[in-house]
Amino acid sequence: MTAGGTTTASAFRATLKRDLLIAYKRKNDVINPFMFFIIVVSLFPIGISPDGDRLSEIAAGVIWISVLLASMLSMDNLYRSDYEDGSLEQLLLSPHPLYFMVLAKNISHWLVSGLPVVLISPLLAYMLSLPSEAYLTLFVSLLIGTPILSLIGSIAVALTVGLGSRGLILAVITLPMSVPVLIFGTLAVQASLNSVSPTGFLSLMLAMLAGALSLAPLASAAALRISVS
């Protein structure tokens, strides 16, 4: 697909690169949600009990909930600064389908905020005494689930980017849509703890990811047009 002398693919790459570059230069935005995730998870052994048996029961739920909270904390950065400096208007005026531009921003956001959380999760699962047979399932479910959270969160951020003070509205919009991800993510881990195959739950999550990948950027794009106008 070409428009105005450049391909959509190259504009996609340029946007992805730009967002990764901004994330690299604003390390705080990247590190804060990550540290938040680690801190929240570490509080559970202190607050509940260091007893491995009791922790292993709640480990999957604790990690999944913390991931959800950390992802909401990181969402705020997605369009806010672009809105304030006018880059968002330039993005909307690009001759390429906005779907791909939004997707590039979502992918970059997941790479810097979702992926690190997924990568550190086995270590935290070990800290919470999650039985080792569930490590792989937890890892895979997070790998599938976190991009869904980013894609869904992107819609809510796009809708609210023009508002002055957002407060809890982001959570109110995002959480109801995120709960199914949480349910299937923890169910999958629970299944492998009970020596049942988790593939059914993971397949459902994959279907949700496919749905989110194809629809969420369209919704985000429409929401951005509304917010900017």
């Binding site: 901004i22 230069k25 600064s81 400096d85 006018g86 880059s87 005026l93």
Partner: peptide
């Protein structure tokens, strides 16, 4: 289009 907000990101 160059608007009031010029589209220049301050960190870049």
């Amino acid at each position: 289009y160059i608007g009031h907000r010029t589209g220049v990101s301050k960190v870049l």
